[in-house]
Design a protein around this nucleic acid. Sequence first.
DNA 1: TTTCTGCGAATTGTTGACAATTTCATTGTC
DNA 2: GACAATGAAATTGTCAACAATTCGCAGAAA
Lengths: 259, 259
Amino acid sequence: MLKSPAALASARRAAGKLQAGAPESVNDAVLAPGTIAFVQASSLSTLVQKELERMIVNGELPAGEKLIEGTLAERLGVSRGPVREAFRGLLEAGLVRFEKNRGVYVRHVSVDEAEEIYEVRAALDEFAGRRLAQMGSPDAVRQLRALVERMEKAASRANVDAYASANLEFHDRLIALTGNAKLLATYRRLVNELNLRRRSSLEIGGTMAVSIREHREIVEKIAAGQVAAAGRALNEHAMESRQRMRQRAQGVPGKLSTK
Amino acid sequence: MLKSPAALASARRAAGKLQAGAPESVNDAVLAPGTIAFVQASSLSTLVQKELERMIVNGELPAGEKLIEGTLAERLGVSRGPVREAFRGLLEAGLVRFEKNRGVYVRHVSVDEAEEIYEVRAALDEFAGRRLAQMGSPDAVRQLRALVERMEKAASRANVDAYASANLEFHDRLIALTGNAKLLATYRRLVNELNLRRRSSLEIGGTMAVSIREHREIVEKIAAGQVAAAGRALNEHAMESRQRMRQRAQGVPGKLSTK
DNA sequence: TTTCTGCGAATTGTTGACAATTTCATTGTC
DNA sequence: GACAATGAAATTGTCAACAATTCGCAGAAA
């Protein structure tokens, strides 16, 4: 279930070279901007944790998968120490489950737990909606409108992936625009855990039209400064997601346990 | 700033003995019930993390304190590995700050960040209040009333510590009574971070009387099933805490940076 | 005095080794 | 054939050692 080669090792070598004063020409893989600074500022553990987190949220490491220290360490080109440290971080982030002497597993998120998460999300969304409507920032409204348009375009092309991506970004941006970093961190943590469930991106089914209308209404209420209404709309929107998730889960019974 | 001896080591020895099949008589320190099972089920890293977390939230390790792997490992009777793993957990929990090659420090929570936390808390409290009022559980109301009484008794004895403790438990219980475990975990994470600030427990000052009235009103609105009113009362209660915190911080300027 | 500059000590980052535990296939028994 | 016992292989838990980096300080230079 793993495929990535020793990508971390190459990034590490590159950073090492630069740090040692070598010129900029690094003929390894091309790194995303900011990557070098990040690698220099982070330890291997952080790198490993980020990489595993990506794999888990992507679904490359599906829920229930056992993570073997030695195997991962070898594939990532590091020793077991950093991998174990990364595991602790993932554990605290709620992405893996731990059994002493038995190993680490990618967590299953039960339907019940997902419902709980949706409820917390609803509370956060409601707060964000009220706050944005109250702030009355034209720029925020502009950004949100642009994202709704992206959703519309994706829907008109029946591009489910693009739609889902725009949808995620809409909500993430909405939270970020409040300017409350702690709120954003809390929100992202919850969404990350939710990602352990919706691995079949067809979750949206035929509800795109309805969903777009809801999003547009949310934005317009924010734009109009209707504090309570914006909050309520966002709360209900999240609770409907919860409902859809549950119905989907009941329709296709399967992984129900937290195990 | 550290004083605890090798307490973990003794707990570990005790568990080891039991696990090895020795009879129950362990003439080491007396352990709290459940401790043995916990030690058996957890790794040293978990133990260390819990211990450090306790010290940080208690204030034994004040904000800004540098945590030295070797020193901590020696005092806790373990090697550096588990300590490093514990650090990763604390980092993800937001309790420590990390600087590559320089060390780990107990985090400072700036006034701005504390304000953000209070705002998120307000959103969660509001949700919990609405949910409880909607559930209409007589037992929940009974428990909350009992806690308000504890606050009253503490106030009448002018016992600030007892009052603060009852206050914390009131809010924790209120969240827990919703039955939403994820909400509770999210809430506790935030409160934990807030604890990095209010280390001078005199935060409450002379506002005990006002505070008690607010709590009583909250409980009565829940008891009466007034969903919206209960939510609003809790939201406002949290936002007032935020306000008090800020005024206190401005009155006594000091540690402002996140550094 | 203040600012550099080395150099030794302290601390962190990473690794490999070893012990303890679990897993799994194999064997033997009923 | 089902099932328990056994032992080797795989995996985890912990530790100690080594390399790299930072820190602290004495002494030189401005």
